[in-house]
């Protein structure tokens, strides 16, 4: 995928590996899900009650594009699945003043085809076709993607780049966490186990802003070996507020703030290679990458430089 299947398949494979090494029962890795109970939730309150009752033994089933693969491999064995797909309160893409609010159950395909997203969130519009394959995009949801926080997923990187807010709800009420504070580490987020990603509030992108989205994958739709969601403000020939968010490089989306700051104020009229060189120098210091099965950490660092160069080159070409 990246994304939906990704964390199971990637995360799944990692867990399989963990079990290979540390547990003598890897050989039991099966293909049919373990037994569990299932509830088709009809209200958020019902979800909260069930979560209160079952705690960590209950899983929320949204798009299921990761959870199902994980269950089939029995990498997880919940007692209860709470299916939230019937909760209309979590659906829809709406304008709210200077922001676009995307319900947690909004499917990837809806974002991909949304006129609102195309108009106001061009970065997300550009990112969507990169997510896995059509059948996965028909089913996977933004809430699921953000809650799972696959390190190679596109949407977490986009919401960080766009400085979105993530609305979490639980029986205790609701709270909002800035996307930039949400992703803590490998599958580790600010979300508590009893909370749902109810919505994502993304500031409308100013017309003056420029965007870059690109990822490098072994094959179309695979987990990204490296990806970059970037935005910049260009005033005349001068860049400001360069935002670079990398994904697929380590445990979570990485906002390379120092690199962005270093490049802000640079004039794009001069030698672009020189600017790229300066940016690369800061980036090398700032980024820490981790190997995956197909790319070493060194390769990932290199690809981050390549993506940065491509972003700056595109920005320079598109100024005025």
């Amino acid at each position: 995928m990246p994304s939906m299947v990704s964390w199971r398949l990637r995360g799944g494979a990692q867990r399989v590996r963990y079990r290979y090494v540390h547990q003598p029962n890897w050989g039991k890795i099966p293909v049919k899900a373990p037994p569990f109970a299932y509830v088709r939730a009809t209200s958020l309150d019902q979800v909260f009650d069930l979560k209160a009752q079952h705690g960590d033994d209950a899983r929320i089933l949204a798009g299921g594009q990761s959870l199902m693969a994980m269950l089939n491999l029995r990498l997880d064995a919940p007692e209860l699945l709470i299916d939230i797909n019937g909760l209309d309160a979590l659906k829809g893409i709406d304008e709210d003043g200077d922001a676009v609010v995307i319900g947690g159950l909004t499917r990837h395909v809806e974002l991909e085809r949304s006129a609102l997203v195309a108009t106001h969130l061009p970065l997300i519009a550009e990112a969507m076709p990169n997510i896995a394959h059509p059948a996965i995009r028909n089913r996977g949801t933004i809430g699921g993607s953000i809650a799972l926080a696959d390190p190679a997923a596109e949407l977490p990187a986009c919401v960080v780049a766009l400085d979105a807010e993530i609305k979490l709800v639980s029986g205790a009420g609701e709270r909002t966490v800035k996307a930039r504070e949400f992703f803590h580490g490998l599958y580790d987020t600010a979300r508590n186990d009893d909370e749902l990603v109810a919505a994502v509030r993304v500031p409308k992108s100013p017309v003056s802003r420029r965007y870059f989205f690109s990822e490098i994958t072994p094959r179309r739709g695979d987990f990204a070996s490296a990806g970059l969601a970037a935005t910049v403000e260009i005033d005349g020939d001068t860049m400001s507020d360069l935002t670079l968010v990398f994904f697929g490089l380590a445990g979570r989306p990485i906002l390379a703030a120092r690199t962005g700051d270093a490049a802000s104020g640079a004039a794009l009229t001069g030698d672009i290679d020189q600017i790229i060189g300066q940016v690369h120098a800061v980036l090398d210091e700032e980024l820490e990458t981790q190997a995956d099965l197909h790319s070493s950490a060194k390769m990932k660092s290199h690809l981050a430089r390549v993506l940065t160069k491509r972003a700056l080159t595109q920005f320079a070409a598109g100024r005025s």
């Binding site: 089933l61 299921g64 199902m68 299916d83 395909v109 059948a135 996965i136 028909n138 089913r139």
Partner: peptide
């Protein structure tokens, strides 16, 4: 499923009510 393609292995039968 409801007019669009999905992975049959990543959807529960229980969900197609």
């Amino acid at each position: 499923l409801d007019g669009v393609i999905v992975r049959g292995c990543l959807t529960l039968a229980a969900q197609v009510n």
